[in-house]
């Protein structure tokens, strides 16, 4: 329960930064924090108390494996999510670099071209 609560808190903190902060860099940091919160949430969904990691490197794990290891599927999904998160952060940062080169400002209030 503690893991669920803390990961939801991380997601909300990231969303708060995206919604409220005016600095674009802080918004990207908020996206990254939100990403981490989602990853922790998915990992803790697959946790089973008192069981070991899904790496079968000992003889006694070979028989009745499913009663001895945690769920490996969320871990595989999070592996995917981390890589996509890196790609998203890199793309967002390069867009921030381009925006800064146009107006020399990181404040979101300065960019009014897409408003109507």
């Amino acid at each position: 329960m503690f893991f669920f609560a803390s990961s939801i808190a991380l997601i909300l903190i990231g969303l708060y930064a995206v919604l409220v902060k005016r600095n674009i860099m802080k918004m990207v940091i908020g996206l990254s924090i939100m990403d981490t919160g989602v990853n922790i949430l998915i990992i803790s969904l697959g946790f089973i108390r008192g069981k070991t990691a899904p790496i079968i490197n000992a003889k006694d794990l070979l028989v009745r494996t499913s009663s001895k290891v945690v769920d490996p599927v969320p871990q595989a999904l999070v592996l995917t999510a981390i890589v996509i998160g890196v790609a998203v952060t890199a793309a967002a940062l390069s867009i921030v670099m381009l925006m800064y080169s146009k107006k020399k400002s990181l404040e979101i209030e300065e960019y009014k071209e897409l408003k109507w």
Partner: peptide, 25 residues
Amino acid sequence: AITFLLILGFFMLRIAGAFPFGENT
């Protein structure tokens, strides 16, 4: 924003609280 996030967090916690943590799912 804070009000919106609190409402969102309440519902997310309720859903997560229904899930048995650490049990064999």
